[in-house]
Write a protein that binds this DNA or RNA. Structure first.
Length: 492
RNA sequence: CGGGGCGUAGCGUAGUCCGGUAUCGCGCCACGUUUGGGACGUGGAGGCCGUCAGUUCGAAUCUGGCCGCCCCGACCA
């Protein structure tokens, strides 16, 4: 195989690409900006989906599916939303191809088959969903409406990066309708908590929960809540968003309900989503120069067993024990793969499983059979230990938890080290350039100042943290008074 | 869309200035020896050199057009 991964320290961006491609997660496709998610990568996405899906259902949501295409007239109904996404929409204008009379064997778009109304390939589904909800909601008895959809969306990005920004991506989008403002806000916040829970306890990725500034708000939202993570290179990544949409979509699509008093009112809305971008976040939170590191709770394969043997008989002997171990672990709900391929040698397999990030590797050789032992290696620390064979179930269960905790703690420590309070603009710029990471600074609260700082430093306000500590200070840019620090960073 | 780079076997490349149908490594196939950290030997398969046109006896190589991809920026989850 002889795969070489560019070291992080040398070129982080190249390292990231190498990991994605060499760990076999995804590849560039024949379509500009669109990737192929390969089985190894897709399996991780499926684990994310399963986990999130359960969390959504546990909080009362159900799944449904809405069309890929949105008629232009619906798409433009909510003005801010339409305007926000307009410049990155794929548009279907025709419904038929025909043979090119000038060029046999080639196809052209049939000019006769022009659509009367163009169809927009959804960049997000609020428009089509709210148009549908209009017919579903009449009374307060129909509320709340708590629906999620797993789907693909298309945003015609100018520049793309595997998982982090692709023209087509997979995501889930929750769209809920409520009778009251408070209830909708509570839903928005609840889903933010769900995302934070998932990020921290499954992805082992610490996040800051907060509110976006007006500049960074979702187009069509009254408030956008976000979880912000910090990657290994000190750049921030928005990992999930939850929007309080107010009555904007209800008004745009005329979705009214009769309340208990019999009066008509517009419903209150939320939407929230996470995407395959989380795959990128996962990679940039834990992986190293040897390859991918997957937290145990999201690893499609948690344990791989590699036999070391001489000859067929040797393999048979080792397999006997390996299969017992496999079974015992599976009974504890641990996913195990027994890698008994005879076509590769152990060293090759070790390297390959490290590259693919499997949390625990068990090696069993004939030497172990004699001693009643096995060798256990953990991916996060790349350390090995020999244990008694009968200890395997308990040892592995505990180790999986340890690895999960260790990854989170390591990521948390890194984030804490890369979070800096600054009080002057000079300091601010210096930290951004030399130390990177989250920079906590006072801001006067105006979009103008935010925009100027962005233009001058490329740093954006990632969020205003929830339950933020209140503290007197002055804006690092304008010198005007401020009551709290906000989180700045350069971001993906 | 601006700036830079690149298109030669599955992947990475040499050859391009100075025209003569192609180099090396990895991978792949077969057989044998191997197997506690990316094995070794022997033999073998695989390329109309991105594409179209031009110059020429002859083009990967020279000329022109087109297409595609990657990286940096603007836009953005």
């Amino acid at each position: 195989m002889s795969k070489v991964i560019t070291p992080q320290q040398q070129d982080y961006s190249k390292w990231y690409n190498d990991i994605v491609i060499q760990a076999d997660m995804a590849d560039h496709s024949a379509v500009r900006g669109c990737m192929v998610i390969k089985p190894t990568g897709y399996a991780i996405w499926e684990k994310m989906q399963q986990t999130l899906d359960k969390m959504f259902k546990d909080t009362g949501h159900v799944n449904a599916y809405f069309p890929l295409f949105i008629p232009k007239s619906l798409f433009e109904a909510e003005e801010k939303n339409a305007e926000g996404f307009a410049k990155e929409c794929a548009v279907v204008t025709h419904y038929r191809l025909k043979t090119d009379p000038q060029n046999p064997g080639k196809l052209i778009v049939d000019p006769e088959a022009k659509l009367e109304e163009e169809l927009i390939v959804r960049p997000t589904s609020e428009a089509i969903i709210w148009n549908t909800y209009k017919g579903w909601i009449e009374s307060y008895r129909d509320l709340p409406l708590l629906i999620n959809q797993w789907a693909n969306v298309v945003r015609w990005e100018m520049r793309t990066r595997l998982f982090l920004r692709t023209a087509e991506f997979l995501w889930q989008e929750g769209h809920t309708a409520h009778a009251t403002k408070d209830e909708a806000i509570a839903e928005t916040r609840q889903m933010l908590e769900v995302y934070a829970d998932f990020a921290e306890n499954w992805m082992a990725m610490p996040v800051i929960k907060g509110v976006k500034t007006a500049n960074e708000r979702f187009a069509g939202a009254d408030d956008t809540y976000t979880i912000e993570a910090l990657m290994q290179d000190g750049k921030a990544l928005q990992a999930g968003t939850s929007h309080f949409l107010g009555q904007n979509f209800a008004k745009a699509f005329d979705v009214k309900f009769a309340n208990k008093e019999g009066k008509l009112d517009y419903v209150w809305a939320t939407s929230w989503g996470v995407s395959t971008r989380l795959m990128g976040a996962l990679i940039m939170s834990h992986s190293d120069n040897m390859g991918l590191v997957i937290p145990p709770k999201l690893a499609p394969t948690q344990v791989v067993i590699v036999p070391i043997y001489k000859g067929e008989e040797g393999l048979a002997k080792v397999s006997e024990v390996a299969n017992v171990i496999k079974q015992k672990l599976q009974q504890k709900n641990i996913s195990v793969k027994y890698d008994n391929r005879d076509s590769q040698r152990p060293g090759f397999k070790f390297a390959e499983h490290e590259l693919k990030g499997i949390p625990i590797r068990i090696a069993i050789g004939e030497r172990d059979l004699e001693n009643g032992t096995i060798e256990i290696a953990r991916r996060d620390l790349l350390s090995k230990q020999v244990i008694k064979i009968e200890e395997v179930e308990n040892y592995v269960s505990t180790l999986l938890e340890d690895i999960q905790t260790n990854l989170f703690n390591k990521a948390l420590e890194r984030r804490n080290n890369l979070t800096t309070k600054v009080n002057t603009y000079e300091e601010f710029k210096k930290v951004l350039d030399e130390k990177t990471g989250f920079v906590m600074a006072h801001w006067d609260g105006t979009p103008e100042t935010e925009e100027k700082i962005k233009q001058e430093t490329k740093a954006t306000i990632r969020c205003i943290p929830l339950n933020n500590e209140q503290e007197e200070g002055v804006c690092i840019y304008s010198g005007k008074p401020s009551t709290q620090r906000v989180v700045f960073a350069r971001a993906y």
